[in-house]
Computed example of a mutant assay.
Amino acid sequence: MSSLILKGRNVRLRPPCAEDADERLVLGTNAEIAEMYGVNREDIKPITRETAVRWVQGIADHPHA
């Protein structure tokens, strides 16, 4: 099965890959965004490599990914 990549002028959509975990780790955690999703500021923890890998895997496993 080949991977479909959709490209536009300002966007490129592709399936997730292992390297995305590194990029997610670099982004870190933004407290304001976490709060918008209902996370209490005191409960926000820094993202770890393991968390970033699980995040990417969760996207890859999603039926509409």
Rank of each mutant, 00 (worst) to 15 (best):
N10Q: 12
Q57M: 13
G28R: 06
Y37R: 12
L25H: 09
G58T: 05
T29K: 01
N30S: 09
K45Q: 06
P63I: 11
D20I: 02
T51V: 04
H64V: 13
I33N: 00
R12V: 13
L27D: 08
A60E: 12
E19D: 10
P15L: 15
M36E: 02
E50M: 11
S2I: 07
D22F: 05
V26L: 11
G58K: 06
R24K: 05
V39P: 00
H62E: 13
G8F: 09
I59F: 08
S3E: 11
L13D: 14
N30R: 03
R9A: 15
R9C: 14
P15W: 06
Q57I: 07
P63E: 13
R24H: 03
I44Q: 05
E42H: 00
L6W: 09
E32I: 01
R12Y: 12
R14C: 10
G58D: 12
V56Q: 09
A31Q: 04
D61V: 11
E19T: 08
P63L: 12
M36K: 03
V26A: 14
V11H: 14
I47M: 15
T29D: 00
P15F: 06
Q57V: 09
R54V: 06
L4M: 10
E23L: 13
N40F: 00
A65E: 07
T29R: 03
I44M: 10
A18P: 08
E19L: 07
P46M: 14
D22Y: 07
E50G: 15
A52T: 00
N10D: 14
G58F: 04
I47K: 14
E35P: 01
R12P: 03
M36R: 02
N40E: 06
D22I: 11
K7A: 15
N10H: 12
R54W: 01
E19W: 07
I44N: 02
E23T: 07
V39I: 06
A65P: 01
A60D: 13
T48D: 09
S2M: 09
P15G: 10
A34S: 03
R41Q: 03
N30K: 09
T48L: 09
R12D: 10
D43N: 08
V11T: 13
D20Y: 02
P16Q: 12
A60W: 07
G38L: 02
T51M: 15
D22M: 09
C17P: 03
N40Q: 06
A21Q: 05
C17Y: 05
S3P: 04
Y37W: 08
E23R: 09
I44G: 00
R54C: 04
P16R: 12
K45R: 13
H62Q: 12
N40H: 05
V39W: 00
P46I: 11
Y37V: 04
A65I: 02
P16L: 14
D22L: 13
R14G: 08
